[in-house]
Every structure is written in C-alpha cells, then in structure tokens.
Design a binder for these strands. Structure first.
Lengths: 332, 332
DNA sequence: CGTTGGCACTCGGTATCATCGAGTGCGAAC
DNA sequence: GTTCGCACTCGATGATACCGAGTGCCAACG
C-alpha cells in the first residue's frame, strides 16, 4: 500500500509530531536518519501522503500533521510493543510486589499506577461479578421490610443488593432463607443462578424467590470502573473545552465500560480518534488491553490520551500492567 | 465596619461580577436600583473599598473585581439562604422520592444531583463507618491463608477487610471465629470495639484476635467520597491549568475529606479562595453543609466552584440536599 | 460638607499594516 | 527519479493607531 520510503516518512512525521505537537516540515523529516533523501523529495512524497489521507496541512504554508489514518498506519506498523523506561518498569514491579488488600482498592491503585507511568488518564475495569464463584451468601435485615443480600465472591469482590419486601419479616425467616440461599448458590457462579430453588418453609419462599430473581433479573451491580489521572489528561489539551468533553465521558462509568469493551470486541488494542465511536473523543486515542485471571480473559485496562500520544510507550505500559494485574489476581 | 452605602455598592459589584465575569465599573453599579447615587460618588466609595481590600482593579483603567475579602463580606451579609429555582427544587424532590437501593449508589447519585442543580462540581462524603451499629460480621476464607471479614452496618454500608494469616486455617475454625465475632460485635459500633474478646478454642483465638486488631488499629476503610460534575467545573474556568489543579485535588479522596471536614470544623459553611487552605484552590470556593442521620451530624456535602460562583444558589442547594439526604438515610 | 458633573488621562482590546520566515509547489537541471 | 532553485503563501510577530470603558480629581452645587 505504501512503499517503504513513504512509510518511513510517515513514521518520521508521526514521531516528530508526537514529540513536539508542532506541524512537521519537510526539512525536519529529511534530517531524520532513516530518511536519506532531500527535503524536496520528502515534499513530493508528503504531498502524495496528503492526497492519500495520511497527513493534513493546518494551513497552506505550514508543516503537516498526521490524520487518524496516519496514526493508524503508524500504530499498525509498530512491530514490537516498545519498551518501558527503567524507572517505569521499576514502579510497576514494586507496585505488584507490594499490592495487597481489597480488590477495589487495588484496582483503583492500578489505575493510578497506569496513569502515572503514561502521564495520561487511565481506566481499569474490574472483573465482572458473573465469572467468579460464590463463596458465601448472607441475608441481613436492615429494617423490618428491608433485607440486604451480601454475596462474597472468590476473587474478594462483594455483590450487594437491597431487597424491599411487601410485609415485615422476622429474623428467623431471614436466617433460614439465608441458609437456603447459601446452600444453593455457593460454589456456582452468578451467571448460572437457577431461579427455581424456592421449595421450603412457606414464610421464607417469598424472600428466597425475590432474592434469586434479583440475581437473575440482571439488576446486577454494574462492572466496577476506576478512572485515574484525569488531571494528567487535562494537561494534554490546551482547549478547556476538549478537557470538558473528555471529562463528561469519563464521568459516565457505563459509557467507559462499553467503550473499552467495544474496542476490544473489534479486535483492536488501539482506537484512534473517530475509531472510538464517540464524537467527543475525536481528539483522543484509547489504548486498551484485556487481563486474564486464572487463564480467563475477564477485565480490561486502558489509557486515554490525545491522538498524539506516545503509542509505543502506552502499548508497553498497558501490556505490562495488564500482565501484572492478571498475575496478581490469579494468585489472590 | 462598612457603612450601609459601601455595603450596597460592594454587594452590587459582587452580584454583577458573578453574573458577567467582567470587571464592573461605576456606571453599572450606579444603575443598580439599591444604589441611588451618581457614578462619581460610587467611584469615590469604590476607591475606598479598594484601599480597604474588598476590591481590586485588574488594570488601571478597568472596572473592579471583588477580592476574597469582598466575597467574604458578601457571603456574610447574606441574610436568608436564598431560594432555589422551581425546576431545581422539583429535581431534588423527585430525586429523594425515588431514591432507593445501595447506600454507595445513592451517595454517588446525590453528588450528581447536587452538581446538576448548581452546575458545579459536587462532593458527597458518606457517613463514617464508626457511627453505625454492626448488624452482622462474617468471615469468609478466600484462600487457605486469606480470610475476608465482611461487616454489615445498620445503614447498609459494608466494611470489608482482608486478613492475611501466617498458617493455613480450616473452614470450621473460620466459621467458629466468625460466630464468636458476630456474637461479640453485633449491636455495637465499630468505634467501640473491645480488642479483648479472644477467649475460646485456641485455634480460633489467633484469627479472632487479628480480626479485632484490624478493626481497632484504625486500618479502617477510609470514608467514602463521591465527586460528581467535574466536567461542569471545567466549564467554569478558562485556563486549562486551573482546571488541572482542581482536578488534582479532587482526585485525592483523602484530601477532599479533610478539606470539607476542616471547613466545617472552623464553623464555616463557605470557604473562599485562600480560606480553603489549599493553594491550588485559591481561585475556588467551597460551600459545605453537614447532614445528619437520626439526629447525629455525620456526613458532609459540598459544592466546589470558582470564587465567583453563585453563593446564594449554592447555599440553598447544599442546604436542601443535605436535609433531603439526612431524611432519606434516617428512614432507610 | 457631601454629592455631582465635567474633564483630562490611562490603558487594555481591536484593527491595520508591514515584516519575517518556515514551508510549500513546481519547473528546470542533474 | 531526484535534487536544486525560486516564486509564492500565509501564519506569527510586532509596531502603530484608535476606540472606549473606566478612573481620579477638581470645581461647582445644594
């Protein structure tokens, strides 16, 4: 599609622009070691690259800037994932060596880690509750007609649901229902809940049935999302309005989850500008990676930055962090 | 301190500036109905107000802008809290009528509500876990040496702690320890945990002891914080750097909690600019209010905006939302 | 004596214009 | 096919002028 020389030139433009955020002229490109031709030749090629849609000129007499298509080519032509700097690698290593404690806290810390090493906003989506096995189910009555169902999952996550009842219920019935649910659900996953387990004392049947229906009705807890480094993201833009738009997106957890999932589903690890499918993110790129626990791909992490972000570094960061996180969660 | 006329003029300047974000000149002030003097007189008074530190001129030949001291006077001179617009009042009413479900989800929604009606960033600090009574304690072993302690509190909050053990432990011991803890803690508050309850079968003593020490060691869960409307906050500033600084603060949950608590402890309901005690917030004001559950003041909500925010509206919003939230949490 | 009208003055913002220079496109030479 | 040379473009920068909102001050006024 692109001959080798055009590819080199395009790569040089992208790299320069990522560093300087300034339109790149033919002179600079020709100075790059891997481009051994004169500025004039570069100009010809760049004109071609522009008509082919890889570059644009902000103004007639300015250098060129990569288009989304240009970035796409650049990212696709990246052979190895690139390597992290020593200090960053060190940070990651230390982090996972020390990491312990609550699942949520760790995921939140992970998002901060990832944003720290990339200097961009980072997102960590927790493992969906459906895949973990149930360790314990407990019903606790908070008020005569309100019961809280607490489900502890094997990965340390907790699913909780309030159940509103039509009539008062006594503690014994709650305990009985709790025992029945416990017996029925422990060891299975939340995805495989069988709603037809209500066969016992009539006073508990209602409670058990509603509890189970809550679990099957996919009133599930939404997947947990942790966003870190939004302030770093703000530093990457100079228009306050761009920042606002990105923040609006990041505030909506559901949007973030589906966004990451979409990108992964399309088999991408990088979504550039309009590829994200969200108009407010047209100036942004998203670098994602799945992580797997016990061999099963379950969660997602991602980095969100301007389209002119450092892709090799972000890809490397995302890769190493997702691997570390997967390991850490697999052992427990 | 300020004669009535100076006060009127100062109020007029603040109100105008809050609306227009432009330096206000003597002409505009003189046009205000409550100031029945000529621009010339206003100028004299404004010059005085400037030397007294209530106003500043950005440039020699520009109008005046309130200083923090000026805003402070304005806020202090507010007699009644001001009233919310009808649509906002309606929003709040609807919100608390419909609100139900998990505590955390509700607090998060509340922060969104508050930010929506004020068009500023809003913060909601959840009730500290120490004040609620324990409804249930349960130990669940996740791995042979890792036990998760789940504590359900009367307000629906859940406290969880992982406990790492030195040696493997069997399920029976965990269950026994769980029972002992349950018996010992239910009905009390987390603040009043007596660490000396370890008197039972020797194999469970260790587990019970560490569990109790975790609770007394103030390794407590940090108070839960929910921040909403950061994108609206971004819209209130025109320097991207200001936005970045504020975001940096809002990212640090601990800082936010102590910030709100500090302001309340100083007996204030508004902290203006440097009064917040945080240099990065020198362009911001914070309007806070406590809310009480069952008659006890426990949590805090707040609105964070530029110093030239609409104080009457923010005060009204914070008041009505804190009242609503308190009610809602009191009944359950 | 406080208030007001008048007036000279300040100075930021905007528009105009010239200049500069990085960068381009293209035709001619290599 | 590549390179050199050159005319051209156009944003950025800076100087200049002008406008007008706003001020401070002084003199007049009730």
């Amino acid at each position: 599609m692109l001959d080798e020389r055009k590819a080199s030139i395009l790569r040089a433009v992208v790299e320069e622009y990522i560093q300087t955020a300034q339109p790149v002229g033919s002179r600079h490109v020709a100075a790059a070691p891997e481009v051994a031709v004169s500025p004039a030749t570069v100009r010809n090629e760049m004109a071609q690259l522009e008509t082919d849609g890889y570059l644009v000129q902000p103004h007639t007499s300015a250098g060129r800037i990569p288009t989304d298509k240009g970035y796409r080519f650049f990212v696709d032509s990246l052979s190895q994932p690139g390597h992290l700097g020593a200090p960053e690698t060190q940070l990651v290593r230390e982090f996972f060596a020390k990491a312990h404690g609550e699942l949520e806290a760790m995921l939140a810390d992970t998002s901060r880690l990832l944003s720290n090493i990339t200097r961009q906003a980072a997102v960590v989506v927790g493992p969906p509750h459906e895949v973990a096995t149930v360790r314990s189910v407990q019903l606790v009555s908070l008020h005569p007609r309100v019961v809280l169902m607490v489900i502890v999952l094997s990965n340390g996550a907790i699913d909780k649901h309030t159940i509103d009842l039509d009539s008062d219920i006594d503690d014994e019935s709650v305990a009985a229902a709790s025992a029945r649910l416990n017996e029925h659900l422990v060891g299975g996953t939340l995805a495989s809940v069988d709603p037809a387990a209500a066969t016992g004392a009539p006073d508990t049947d209602a409670l058990v049935a509603t509890a189970l229906s809550v679990l099957t009705d996919d009133h599930h807890d939404p997947d947990s999302v942790f966003v870190g480094g939004t302030s770093l993201m703000a530093g990457s833009f100079d228009a306050v309005d761009s920042v606002r738009q990105v923040l609006t997106i990041l505030e909506e957890q559901i949007v973030v989850v589906t966004l990451l999932r979409d990108v992964l589903d399309r088999g991408l690890s990088v979504a550039i500008g309009s590829e994200t499918g969200m108009e407010p993110l047209s100036e942004c790129s998203l670098v994602v990676a799945p992580y797997s626990v016990d061999g099963e791909g379950v969660g997602t992490i991602g980095v969100l930055g301007p389209t002119r972000m450092n892709y090799p570094q972000a890809l490397a960061a995302v890769a190493v962090v997702s691997r570390g996180l997967g390991h850490r969660l697999s052992e427990g």
